[in-house]
């Protein structure tokens, strides 16, 4: 691979930061969920890149990435259910309106 490891890391960092910004500022709960998915994808790119550059034969990073994907799928499924549940009960999915736990 001619592209150096650092460039993969920087790509991953950029996407992670974009995702983080989204998770912090999106009002729509679905939007937050999508931003989180972005962050998870960025982490996966990191893992796979390290796997390729540090221990190309063992593929450990790829295994981790598979676990992360499984968790991402699980979180989306549960997130979907929670969003639907909240929407049904409160008629809103704006994250800053959902403050039931506040004092």
């Amino acid at each position: 691979m001619i592209v150096p490891l650092a460039h993969f890391l920087i790509l991953s960092l950029i996407i992670f930061c974009i995702g983080l910004y989204g998770a912090l500022t999106r009002r729509n709960a679905v939007g937050i969920l999508m931003s989180v998915e972005l962050m998870l994808n960025a982490a996966n790119i990191n893992l796979v890149a390290f796997s390729r550059f540090v221990s190309p034969q063992s593929g450990t990073g790829q295994i981790f990435a598979v676990f992360v994907m499984a968790l991402a799928a699980a979180s989306v499924a549960v997130g979907l259910a929670i969003v639907i549940c909240i929407y049904r009960n409160h008629r809103t999915i704006a994250a800053d309106k959902i403050d039931l736990m506040k004092w």
Partner: peptide, 27 residues
């Protein structure tokens, strides 16, 4: 590009196939 073909296909299946579809549903 990183020689992780298996992961690439899993990525397409899981993300494009399942996650994005689920999110579209949610929307």
């Amino acid at each position: 590009m990183l020689d992780a073909e298996f992961l690439a296909f899993v990525q397409i299946l899981v993300y494009v196939g399942a996650v994005v579809t689920l999110i579209a549903f949610m929307v």
